[in-house]
Amino acid sequence: MSLARPRALVFDWDNTLVDSWGTIHAALNTMFARMGHEPWTLDETQLKVRKSLRDAFPAMFGDRWEEARDLYLQAFEALHIERLSPLPDAEVLVQAIVARGHYLALVSNKTGRLLRDEVAALGWGHYFAKVIGAGDAVRDKPDRAPVDLALDGSGIAAGPAVWFVGDTGIDMACALNAGCVPILVHGPEGGLLRDEEFADATPARHFRDCMALAREISQ
Rank of each mutant, 00 (worst) to 15 (best):
P6E: 05
V10P: 08
V10R: 05
D12M: 14
W13Q: 13
D14M: 10
N15C: 03
T16E: 13
L17T: 10
L17A: 14
S20M: 11
S20Q: 11
T23R: 08
I24A: 03
I24C: 03
N29T: 02
F32I: 02
R34A: 15
R34C: 14
E38N: 12
P39E: 04
P39G: 10
P39H: 03
W40L: 13
T41F: 07
D43E: 15
D43L: 04
E44W: 04
T45R: 11
Q46A: 11
Q46N: 12
L47T: 15
L53R: 03
L53Y: 11
E66G: 02
D70F: 01
Q74A: 15
A75I: 03
L79R: 15
H80I: 09
H80N: 14
S85I: 00
P88C: 08
A90G: 04
V94Q: 05
A96W: 02
G101P: 02
G101Y: 02
A105G: 05
A105T: 01
V107C: 14
K110A: 02
K110R: 04
G112M: 01
R113W: 12
R116S: 00
R116P: 00
D117N: 12
V119H: 04
A121Y: 10
G123C: 13
K130S: 13
V131W: 01
V131Q: 11
D136V: 11
D136C: 06
A137P: 07
P142S: 09
P142N: 06
P142M: 07
D143C: 10
V147Q: 10
L151D: 05
G153D: 05
S154M: 06
A158M: 03
A161R: 15
V165Y: 09
D167R: 00
T168I: 08
T168W: 05
G169Q: 10
G169P: 07
N177H: 14
A178P: 06
G179P: 06
G179A: 04
G179Q: 13
G187M: 07
D195F: 06
E196N: 07
F198R: 09
A199N: 12
A199R: 15
H206F: 04
A214W: 10
S218C: 12
S218A: 15
